[in-house]
């Protein structure tokens, strides 16, 4: 097989993949900083965490999917880190 990179058989080819991942991380950090201060992502409180169906306050299991309701979730805005 004709080698694509400078030489074949070394772990330095992994640098391509690592470079892509690092670039991706840097790009997402850059975008996150730009969007900092945006409105937090709000979630209605009485919604099944599994299927999104509306739940009555006294329902232990979701009538749609059968999962037990999870404890109330903290609002999930952009998290640090």
């Amino acid at each position: 097989m004709k080698p694509i990179l400078a030489h074949q058989g070394g772990w330095d080819e992994m640098l391509v993949a690592a470079g892509l991942v690092l670039g991706m991380l840097a790009f997402s950090r850059f975008r996150r900083r730009r969007h900092e201060g945006a409105a937090p992502h709000e979630r209605p409180p009485d919604v099944c965490a599994y299927c999104g169906a509306a739940l009555a306050p006294d329902e232990v299991r979701c009538p749609s999917c059968g999962f037990q309701r999870t404890r109330p979730q903290p609002p999930s805005g952009p998290s640090p880190g």
Partner: peptide
């Protein structure tokens, strides 16, 4: 789940 907050199980199912 740590990134978005909340428990892992509903995420695992979804």
């Amino acid at each position: 789940a740590k990134i978005v907050g909340g428990s892992w199980h509903p995420l695992a199912v979804r």
